[in-house]
Design a protein around this nucleic acid. Structure first.
Lengths: 128, 128
DNA sequence: ATACCTACTTACTAAAATGTTAGTGCCCTA
DNA sequence: TAGGGCACTAACATTTTAGTAAGTAGGTAT
């Protein structure tokens, strides 16, 4: 078994922070950790409640198992979600937000809010 | 000349909004309009000041011309940036945030803030 | 005459992200 | 004993995104 490789955090050295405007690094870092098609949706689900793997699958039926598991693993790697194995038959694995994961809430809310109002603003164009 | 195709706004029909939790659509929409490697960085630059094409290029030297122009065009398409041609020699094209574009500020700030604090929190791990 | 400036466009390539399909081992139920 | 739920993993294919390199056209500076 080879170890999973996760992306290293942007930036790689402190000079990058000083050499570039900080916003550049901050935004990039957020995108690296929370970006991608599914991660924030998973986090949103976990804000509602901790969920088992199969419950998450049912909550977000469009996601493939590969993306679900790899997103969860990356989020766990970044200490945003916590994976708990419950000894039971059949096996149960629970995913929940870590304390640190709670800090993602404002990101989620702002993005959700902006997108929602964007949809409303343009709903006439979309739905003619 | 064929017309540029821009992604249609998520979701495509109103049922999707009702059929899924709203956060799903809101987040997806935000990602569709503001996502990608460069768009938010460009918007961040334009929050500092309106800038000419070549100034943007200098501000974000890592970006390729292709990505710069296509990001700008998509942002213009979504009415977030405004493109103004200044009749002059050599030609000048100014890009600035639209009024609507100003509404992106909280998104930018939250993402920047979270990423920045994430970098700080993990700076020991990154830079040991 | 040559090179460079401006703001782009086009064609092509490479890399990254995501999707598909099948399979694992354990146990349970019909 | 056949099939299904559970929580995954692995190999491979496809799609999406981003990067590279060259070209355009009018003008200026050397």
């Amino acid at each position: 078994m080879k170890k999973k490789q996760f992306k290293t955090l942007y930036p790689r050295n402190i000079e990058t922070v000083n050499g570039r405007p900080l916003d550049y690094c901050g935004i990039r870092c957020s995108m690296e950790v929370l970006g991608g098609k599914w991660k924030l949706l998973i986090v949103a689900e976990l804000f509602k409640n901790k969920k088992r793997y199969s419950e998450l699958k049912r909550s977000i039926p469009e996601i493939s198992e590969k993306m679900l598991i790899s997103s969860l693993q990356e989020l766990e790697h970044h200490n945003i979600v916590v994976r708990t194995v419950v000894e039971a038959i059949p096996p149960q694995v629970e995913y929940s937000l870590s304390k640190y994961g709670q800090s993602v809430r404002p990101v989620l809310e702002t993005l959700f809010g902006w997108g929602e109002s964007h949809i409303k603003k343009h709903s006439d164009k979309i739905f003619h």
